[in-house]
Nucleic acid binder design. Structure first.
Lengths: 346, 346
DNA sequence: CTGAAAGCGCTTACAG
DNA sequence: CTGAAAGCGCTTACAG
């Protein structure tokens, strides 16, 4: 004989509170709080009565209220470029796992590579009082975060450095990875190598370009500026950039693709051409080994980037306040075939 | 001459409140609230003084407190299987975009295909009082959600139906898609077709199996039970299952792969075999057109699944209370080569 | 145009 | 073992 409905019916959408549970169980508010939070000092009989009231009313503690009182929200924010980009999936999941192991929830959002949207998202997360932030920056000026960081919002930047603000940052060795990629092509006999990269305002794009130039210079090779193209990574742009390099007056015999999206389009372009062209891509991706030729890549460990960043974040949340760190993770060249194609001299 | 530090210094980690702003600006609390929320009825001069105090103190409204008072949290929860799975990236992003267009944030987490973890996550989100939930269920009994749904938490299930609970659900036409895939193989002359699917407790796996059997039956073809294998989708299991079908006493000449992860492993297995074997995979994936042979697939529209589910959710949040809906989205067979290989009769 | 009081649903600090 | 009071930082409902 339950009597859930007797006098305690509540309007749809409103939920029972500890006060409701207390009055139903005939105890004080604090006793309910003790039972809900498993604190000691409640007789078995009282506890049972409270539990019954909780079940009958369908009570669930309102963590928003709890958070307001306790200070820490046990949630962290993650702002990345695009949740749908396969590069960020493992990174996001890694951050989630670390958060979970610390009992925290993850709130995330995509900046869509738009600095204004990044700022809007970050500040919305700060207003929700997340304990900390992991940010893959779209913009290059993060001074808007200064009051938040000063107020104690732990912040770690990943994949790209922060702009104008001093904070922990976790990066891949973009320069070294690019150098390795281009040196690999040079070692296989190439002298005219093209670079198709992301937009110049993106830090990783510039670092990879720097690595490309360094490797060429180290081998004493000149770089014709028509071999370098930075810009949006949509298929149309990449296709025309690659085609121009392959068909230009000084045609390249090899291409270095600046990220996973560029690589995929370049693979399509090369598949349509009669002569073989060597290719190394930055970023590994599923099935790179199944395409023919299989794609040689410089792999970053996205999950490790996320894990490392989240680790630094919780270190800060544990109160460790040493100077901001800069962690650089190594990349790894994986030779699969496309990067070992010799120069084709028509 | 700012005087930020004069008497208003706060300990690290604590943030100024409206009360602090009010006393610094020499106005009442409610006036600060009016300025912060852009409400009318404040003289330009007062507003200016309040704005100055806000800037000097680095004030940012605490949305947790606001939420507690207002009721709605302007956040929705998304529980999926694995953020790192490329199938869920676009779905997640689509849900995010719809949430964003409604001014809501997204809190998400991975169930890792573990019903206990799914429940833990869902209830944690309910305790945070998300306005609504989009759930890709791992478990098959969601009665634990009944009190939450009764209390007004809008809930939409995606990709797989809810268990034991009446709620909106958005699915792909798994049965029809599987039927199309197998019928396609039959049309290309196959009579012995294998099916490698996901674990039998997963709804989509069973629906796709049902489609496989229906297509075989419709063509009057018998199904040898050694041609059907359901189980974990890790490479080892899939590899041995596929190999057994290909090397068995009644060897199959074509395979139907039950999802993207199975397909990828099957492609690897087939690449190592001397004789050609036809393949159709459920789920499209990047580069499916670049592998040789290119992979014929039954594609689902993951982004549309997410968009549709989030749309239904916000419809509920807008107060529309008609009976739960079941939406089934069509799949699309994309012939690329692997599914058009004729039977190889050794 | 402006602000003091009450309250959202909890926890903290105390007192019995 | 138990509970009444105060307070977290806002908004609501009212009064001037």
């Amino acid at each position: 004989m339950t009597d859930t409905a007797r006098g305690t019916a509540r309007r749809y959408g409103s939920r029972p509170t500890m006060k409701d549970v207390a009055s139903r169980a005939g105890v004080g508010l604090k006793t309910v709080s003790r039972v809900v939070n498993g604190e000691p000092g409640v007789t078995p009989d009282t506890e049972r009565r409270v539990q019954e009231a909780i079940t009958a009313l369908g009570f669930r503690r309102n963590d928003s209220a709890r958070i307001l009182r306790k200070g820490r929200t046990a949630s962290i924010g993650l702002v990345l470029e695009d949740l749908a980009d396969p590069f960020y999936g493992p990174l996001c999941r890694a951050v989630e796992e670390v958060a979970r192991s610390h009992g925290a929830l993850l709130i995330n959002g995509s900046s869509a590579e738009d600095p204004a949207r990044e700022q809007e998202l970050v500040l919305a997360l700060c207003a929700r009082r997340v304990d900390g932030l992991v940010v893959i920056p779209a913009g290059d000026d993060h001074r808007y975060l200064e009051p938040e960081i000063a107020a104690g919002v732990a912040t770690v930047f990943v994949d790209r450095p922060a702009g104008q603000v001093d904070a922990d940052v976790v990066l891949s060795d973009n320069f070294g990875g690019a150098q390795d990629a281009v040196a690999h092509l040079i070692a296989h006999g190439h002298r005219r190598i093209g670079f198709v990269g992301d937009q110049p305002r993106i830090h990783t794009a510039m670092e990879r370009l720097r690595g490309y130039r360094a490797a060429m210079a180290a081998a004493g090779l000149p770089v014709d500026e028509s071999w370098v193209s930075l810009g949006a990574t949509d298929p149309e742009r990449v296709r025309s950039a690659a085609t121009a390099m392959l068909d230009g007056p000084e045609p390249v015999t090899a291409l270095f693709a600046g990220n996973n999206r560029v690589t995929v389009t370049v693979v399509r372009v090369l598949g349509e051409r009669p002569q073989p062209v060597a290719l190394v891509g930055f970023d590994d991706f599923e099935l790179a080994d199944l395409v023919r030729p299989a794609i040689t890549v410089v792999a970053q460990d996205a999950a490790r980037l996320g894990r490392t960043a989240a680790g630094l974040l919780f270190r800060r949340l544990d109160g460790i306040a040493d100077p901001p760190r800069r962690v650089e993770l190594p990349t790894r060249l994986i030779a699969r075939g496309s990067g070992e194609i010799p120069p084709y001299e028509g």
